[in-house]
């Protein structure tokens, strides 16, 4: 692959039923490109957790996925409420999710730690009242 490939998705924040659509589509695209299944799995899980977070915590946003020679990059951007204390949010089990979200099977406070675990690089930029941008890389080696 000499040129970088890019996939862009809108993540609808109003419809929980559609949450995760972008990740399913990315997984299909990466399979078609013949990327190693273990790499695809890491990208899929990290992106899915991030996509769900955008829906349950931030009214949706955009997801960009970049594929180049060395890695797959995922950039998730939203204009939600932002994260007040990032190191706290990164702790396993920390969650501000509502009971409604828990009844849907999410909100165990494992999303951000899981995203960190499955990626080789993760950066969170967040401003209260402005939004959050999370960048993740999964390297081929």
């Amino acid at each position: 692959m000499s040129e970088e490939l890019k996939f862009t998705y809108n993540v609808d924040g109003e419809d929980f039923n559609s949450a995760g659509q972008a990740s399913v589509s990315v997984k299909k695209n990466l399979r078609q490109l013949g990327i190693d299944p273990e790499i695809i799995r890491k990208v899929s899980i990290a992106m899915y957790e991030g996509e769900i977070n955008m829906v349950i915590h931030a009214h949706g946003g955009t997801a960009d996925v970049f594929v180049d020679d060395e890695k797959i990059g995922i950039v998730l951007s939203d204009k939600g409420p932002g994260i007040a204390d990032i190191s706290k949010a990164m702790q396993e089990g920390y969650s501000t999710a509502t009971d409604t979200v828990r009844a849907l099977g999410f909100g165990a406070g494992m999303g951000l730690p899981n995203m960190k675990r499955y990626t080789d690089y993760m950066n969170i930029e967040s401003q209260i009242g402005e939004g959050t941008t999370i960048t993740m890389h999964v390297k081929y080696q």
């Binding site: 929980f16 899980i45 899915y48 828990r102 099977g105 999410f106 494992m110 899981n114």
Partner: peptide
């Protein structure tokens, strides 16, 4: 029934047994 737990703790299991009902 917690998809969060499946995502965090499952490792290559081939079947998911659940009582939860939604597209997620």
């Amino acid at each position: 029934d917690m998809m969060s737990d499946v995502l965090a703790f499952a490792k290559n299991q081939a079947i998911l047994v659940t009582g939860l009902m939604n597209p997620q």
